[in-house]
Simulated scan of single mutants.
Amino acid sequence: MPKIIPIKDLKNTSQISEMCHVAEEPIYITKNGYGDMVIMSVEMYEITMKRLNMYRQLELSENQIDTGKTRDARESLDNLKKKYAI
């Protein structure tokens, strides 16, 4: 279940930092009862960014397959072997 705290609780920075490092998901900050910000640890942010990049790369690959922008793997390897005399 997501952790949701009011913005006034951000005054206790050491407690918020501890929450960010213990939580395995972002912490949602509300202002006047409405969503305002999301905070997370640097480690969680880096994991999230790596995952997002992976999804982008997969989407690019799927688009290349759908548009026929692919090559036969054996043919490509043979071309590389000839090019570099392997």
Rank of each mutant, 00 (worst) to 15 (best):
M1K: 12
P2H: 07
P2C: 02
K3Y: 10
K3V: 15
K3L: 14
I4V: 15
I5E: 02
I5R: 05
I7H: 09
K8Q: 10
K8F: 06
N12Y: 00
S14L: 09
Q15I: 08
I16G: 04
S17N: 13
M19H: 07
C20G: 03
H21C: 11
V22A: 05
V22D: 08
V22Q: 11
E24I: 07
E25G: 06
I27E: 01
I27C: 01
I27V: 14
I27A: 06
Y28M: 13
I29L: 02
I29T: 04
I29F: 01
I29N: 07
I29Y: 04
T30D: 02
T30E: 07
T30C: 05
T30N: 02
K31V: 01
N32P: 00
N32W: 00
G33C: 00
Y34N: 12
G35D: 01
G35N: 07
G35H: 01
M37Q: 12
M40E: 08
M40K: 05
S41C: 07
V42S: 10
V42Y: 10
V42R: 07
E43A: 15
E43I: 08
M44Q: 11
Y45E: 10
Y45T: 04
E46R: 14
E46C: 11
E46Y: 03
I47L: 10
I47Y: 02
T48Y: 09
T48G: 00
T48L: 09
M49K: 15
M49Y: 02
R51A: 13
L52D: 15
N53F: 12
M54Y: 14
R56T: 02
Q57M: 10
E59D: 15
L60C: 06
S61N: 13
S61K: 03
S61D: 12
E62C: 14
E62G: 07
E62N: 11
E62T: 14
N63I: 03
I65V: 15
I65W: 05
D66M: 11
T67C: 06
T67Y: 08
R71A: 12
R71M: 07
D72S: 08
D72R: 08
A73E: 11
A73W: 06
E75C: 05
E75K: 13
E75T: 09
S76V: 10
L77A: 13
L77D: 10
D78Y: 04
D78F: 05
N79C: 04
N79K: 12
L80W: 04
L80F: 02
K81W: 00
K81M: 10
Y84K: 03
Y84G: 05
A85T: 06
A85D: 13
I86Y: 05
